[in-house]
Design a protein around this nucleic acid. Structure first.
Lengths: 143, 143
DNA sequence: TCCATTTAGTTGATTTTGTCAACTATTTTT
DNA sequence: AAAAATAGTTGACAAAATCAACTAAATGGA
């Protein structure tokens, strides 16, 4: 593997880290922290699910997650009930209020990205997607 | 702009955030924190430079940077001297020890990436670089 | 020149974020 | 039934980041 190649990939990584940082900024104007937003996102997509599942997906400390999730419950964003199969674990899901909050963040995030990409012509946008798709394919090992 | 397009870009962003997170992990085995490593990186590339310059480039709080940089000085990684033109600002540069530390981190980082990409054939590697270059072009506004 | 304003950097206080280990209550294994 | 493993909680702490007040120097007028 060529050294120069690695340097170029690193340069792209630095570049894209900046882009992602830019996009994460919108969260600072919301009442949720980045990790909270991430939990909300995964809850939306995984529900119903247990804390352990979220820990595995997000790679977050379980103690930390426990607090985040307790906060959500206090705010009425989620419901929790003990699993009947395994009384150690709880089954979590977003309440309609939780879904609303998620939708708010999610839409703001999409809007921010839309804005960031607004200068792209439809054809350039298509190109962008092709490149992204290809990178994802290339970096997802199995084949 | 199509809604679906935005969703796809967001999916790529999530995917790539994971990749970058994976790569950042190597830092946890080094005696430097992520922000310290970042400062070291920028010092290496910008030196000689002032704290204000680093603040602008990295987008870091100046108080925070001040502490990081003071720590570096105590460890003998950098030298500082008052600028003659403007006695408020200091001109910083890496010492040879600082350069050595930077090189260690930098090489470890490159090695980690090399490892991550080791399964790519030379031709796939070339493809990857093409896509990255194109994305960078597309997202760098001016033209 | 003098004075007000701006700028570079430091410091203390505080908040936010994340980590770790101990602990309870269950479940699984043997 | 005892031992080991697992889910989640909690307290203590450490690391990362923010903010405002402060010193010292520079700058831009009146």
């Amino acid at each position: 593997m060529k050294n120069k190649d690695i340097q170029l990939v690193r340069e792209f990584n630095r570049f894209y880290t900046g882009i992602i940082g830019l996009l994460d900024e919108h969260i600072f104007q919301s009442p949720y922290s980045l990790p909270e937003a991430r939990v909300l996102y995964e809850l939306h997509h995984q529900q119903p699910c247990s804390a352990t599942e979220l820990v595995q997906i997000i790679g977050m400390d379980k103690g930390y997650l426990s607090r985040v999730v307790n906060g959500f419950e206090k705010k009425g964003l989620i419901t929790r009930r003990r699993s009947k199969k395994d009384a150690r674990s709880t089954s979590m899901a977003l309440t309609s209020k939780g879904e609303k909050e998620f939708a708010l963040i999610d839409q703001a995030s999409a809007a921010q990205l839309t804005n960031l990409l607004s200068f792209l012509s439809p054809s350039k946008m298509k190109d962008l997607l092709v490149h992204m798709t290809e990178i994802k394919k290339l970096l997802t090992k199995r084949n």
